[in-house]
Design a protein around this nucleic acid. Structure first.
Length: 483
DNA sequence: TGAAATGTTGGGGCG
DNA sequence: ACGCCCCAACATTTC
């Protein structure tokens, strides 16, 4: 049946291809109204951060363009989502609303309430999976128990088989009534007031076309050496698809399908390795769905008792600015500030320094990443920080503490990454680059550096802080008997 | 997806 | 030739 009007409520599915809500609307209604609603306040405490809003602005601009190219128009509104949808239903006479699901606890609660409310007024509402290979509730242990360890989750996922068939984008769309009011994108004020995003444009192309360009480049050039090169922050070995995935400009179904077309993802190939990373994203969604408190509290409750150092405001500031005195960590934190992104290997090092060597609560680090990452994603961010802090699912054991000197020497041996983001160390030779304080004042002076003036002294003694962390973590009560 | 401490082995220098 | 020591290289254990 194709009569009447349907609303497609876009959220973080900012694409036209493989978009089940859009396709369903096109199949079931004559008129289709694409809508985005910006909620001014988010009561969950996890309102979108500044870097993500920058991305959202440009992704929405791209969506506006591609809708316009196909004869449609994006209707932008501002306000509480349920109220705005009801207003739009009244204005358009639509009787159907379709959207693709979000999985954050607050979004689930909001969407469920909206769905109930709309259905009570006789509106036809349906939601779809556009963001995941499998719904978080589709993979589970025998009795439906959620997984807490990645490997069995990954095996269960593979046992289900991965045969996605993404849908192509519609080539044309029905027009939107010209009198239907849309708020100009600029009025959402998504871009930052202070232009700290100046360097972002050189690194990113938000939107569906940008996502595909990135995927093509990754599959053409980078995926073959992915297994080895993904750990080297100085080289372009990673996919850099995370922000595109977060905003749904491309779906994991599409990625897996595109990989299938080019290379068989054997377990030891680059594609197999990358598929595993996609599965980590699924695992993060699975965990947050089943343990919704883990955005703010440790999954393993014992870790709340740890003697976290809440008073380290000065140290947090130095960490945020990339002035810890550990070159690889500082490089990462500055890359984050300048580009809205940080290489994953360096995220682990930076997180380990903050949570283990400095004993700053992982939630503080998670907040900073949340505000500064263009790919800030609540499931991934929560899992990542709890993994590093040792309090989450499949977490790193408490004694796994990264040494930023050794990690730097192993993964940035030629110092390309450090010299790119910490230019004041550019003249320090490889031998001393990751441990400049050991070179001695005389040598440092020869490279134009006085420690504490041109580059900071180490924020904390690695050996002592490691021992302090081992003592603190080791003093926690033994874990509860395993299931 | 760790690092440090401790243990083992084997070759070379030397008396 | 032999035992002894040293120590690098690697393996194992511990945190």
């Amino acid at each position: 049946m194709t009569a009447g009007t349907a609303i497609v409520w876009f959220r973080r599915d900012l694409r036209l291809a493989d978009n089940p809500a859009l396709l369903t609307a096109l199949a079931s209604a004559e008129r289709v109204i694409p809508v985005f609603v910006d909620a001014p306040e988010d009561a969950s405490g996890w309102a979108m951060g500044s870097a993500s809003r920058w991305w959202l602005h440009h992704s929405l601009a791209a969506l506006e363009r591609s809708l316009a190219e196909r004869g449609s128009r994006l209707i932008i509104r501002r306000g509480e989502a349920g109220a705005e949808l009801r207003r739009l239903l009244a204005e358009t006479g639509a009787r159907q609303v379709f959207w693709n699901r979000l999985y954050e606890p607050a979004a689930i609660a909001r969407d469920a309430a909206i769905k109930r409310l709309l259905r009570e007024t006789g509106i036809d509402v349906a939601s779809f999976n556009a963001a995941l290979l499998y719904e978080p509730w589709e993979i589970g242990r025998g009795g439906g128990e959620p997984y807490r360890v990645f490997t069995p989750f990954w095996k269960a996922m593979q046992a289900r088989g991965l045969e996605p068939v993404p849908e192509p984008a519609p080539s044309s769309l029905p027009p939107v009534p010209p009198d239907l009011v849309s708020q100009p994108l600029a009025e959402l004020r998504l871009l930052p007031g202070i232009p700290w995003d100046a360097g972002f444009h050189a690194h990113w192309q938000a939107g569906e076309a940008g996502a595909w360009a990135r995927l093509e480049e990754f599959l053409e050039a980078d995926i073959r050496g992915y297994r080895q090169r993904r750990d080297l922050p100085g080289e372009p070995g990673t996919s850099r698809l995370s922000p595109h995935l977060h905003f749904g400009e491309i779906s994991p179904r599409q990625i897996v399908s595109a990989m299938r077309d080019r290379e068989v993802p054997a377990a030891d190939s680059g594609a197999g390795c990358y598929l595993r990373e996609i599965a980590w994203r699924e695992f993060a969604h699975h965990l947050l769905f089943h343990f919704p408190h883990t955005t703010d509290a440790p999954l393993d409750a014992r870790f709340a008792q740890l003697p976290w150092r809440e008073d380290g405001a000065d140290e947090i500031g130095r960490w945020q600015r990339g002035e810890t005195g550990y070159p690889i960590v500082d490089a990462g934190m500055r890359e984050l500030w300048r580009t809205g992104w940080m290489h994953n290997r360096v995220r682990m090092m930076a997180a380990s320094l903050l949570t283990k060597n400095l004993l700053v609560p992982w939630q503080r680090g998670a907040r900073w990443f949340w505000d500064t990452l263009v790919d800030a994603d609540l499931p991934n961010n929560s899992l990542g920080w709890q993994w590093t802090a040792g309090c989450g699912a499949d977490a790193a054991p408490y004694f796994r503490i990264f040494n930023p000197v050794l990690q730097g020497e192993r993964f940035d041996p030629k110092g390309e990454y450090v010299r790119r983001w910490v230019p004041e160390l550019a003249r320090v030779p490889d031998e001393w680059l990751h441990r400049p304080w050991e070179a001695g004042a005389e040598r440092l002076a020869g490279w134009g550096i006085r420690l504490g003036e041109h580059y900071p002294r180490p924020i904390v003694d690695l050996k002592l802080s490691r021992e302090r962390a081992l003592a603190a973590f080791g003093a926690l009560k033994a874990p509860p008997a395993s299931v």
